[in-house]
């Protein structure tokens, strides 16, 4: 056996830095994610496929005809699909995968190594960031090339795009970590998380025009971040003249969007930090 030929005590070296390990974890998480067929399809490709389907089916219609505002359906759907992608890549992905890793004991095993908790979470954040950036980029390319959605040309709109994307991803990630403690097992994780995400998509103006939903539904959706992310993204891709017809409030509400997403970020962070467990709930 080869182990016998290896010296038991190596030279005394420092522990690897948490940042370096965080990057190594990011690479590892991305590799694993890319091999999970379910994840690639239902988290990464799903919004792109949905955009393609909805834009193809409704592409010829003019949702705001008679208002003097020129907005095509693909143009209206793109912001909602970007918001959906952010929520899937951050919230859904982490809520399911951390629940599975906890249930299978992957977390327990990692806890027994000198890997710092910060590196584990850096790896998750890195994986979420890369996934949602690539996903969003693909959505933009598909929308621009296949469905001729006009891309914003001024820096102000791209700035809005950037902060909504970053704040939304961060809020979705911490909420995903917190929510990963809710499913009772890894097997049930997908069944618990997916319907919540799906309902939010229906009531938050992703599949339907938000202004045409019943008022009570709009009010319920306003309690959750997806509606605000979608609205923030509409302010990037729709002309300002459309706001009177597109948003029930008649305003893009950037202040409220930032405040709600930040509130979810803080609450998710506190809840996540307090409820995160390396071991299964039934593990004593």
């Amino acid at each position: 056996m080869t182990a016998a030929t290896l010296p038991a005590t190596g030279p005394v070296r420092a522990l690897p830095s948490p940042l370096r390990l965080g990057l190594a974890r990011t690479a590892h998480e991305l590799r694993v994610f890319s091999r999970e067929r379910d994840a690639v399809f239902f988290i990464f490709l799903y919004p792109i496929l949905m955009l393609a389907i909805f834009a193809t089916v409704f592409g010829k219609q003019d949702p705001f005809s008679g208002t003097g505002v020129d907005v095509t359906f693909p143009q209206y759907f793109l912001p909602g699909m970007i918001a959906t992608g952010v929520m899937l890549s951050s919230f859904q992905s982490l809520a399911i995968f951390i629940a599975v890793e906890r249930d299978e004991g992957v977390l327990k095993r990692l806890r027994g190594t000198p890997l710092p908790a910060s590196s584990y979470f850096l790896g998750k954040v890195g994986q979420v960031l890369v996934t949602s950036l690539v996903q969003t980029g693909l959505l933009l390319v598909v929308a621009a090339l296949m469905f001729h959605v006009p891309m914003p040309t001024d820096a102000g709109r791209w700035w809005t795009f950037a902060w909504v994307l970053v704040l939304g991803t961060a809020a979705g990630s911490v909420c995903g970590v917190a929510f990963s403690s809710v499913p009772r097992s890894g097997k049930s994780a997908s069944a618990v998380v997916t319907p919540i995400v799906l309902v939010l998509q229906f009531i938050s103006g992703v599949f339907f025009q938000f202004d045409q939903l019943p008022h009570w539904m709009q009010d319920v959706a306003s309690l959750f971040p997806l509606k605000w992310m979608a609205q923030g993204m509409r302010s990037v891709f729709l002309p300002d003249a459309a706001v009177r017809f597109v948003e029930p409030s008649g305003s893009w509400q950037h202040g409220a969007t930032a405040a709600i997403l930040a509130a979810y970020l803080v609450v998710g962070l506190v809840l996540g930090a307090r409820t995160f467990r390396w071991l299964r709930r039934d593990a004593g």
Partner: peptide
């Protein structure tokens, strides 16, 4: 009763875990 990421290969996992340690 402890799993590893099942989509990783043996050599990927062993090399990855080796990174956590100083020597």
């Amino acid at each position: 009763d402890v799993a590893v990421g099942s989509e990783s290969t043996v050599e990927e996992l062993v090399a990855h875990y080796a990174l956590f340690y100083p020597a």
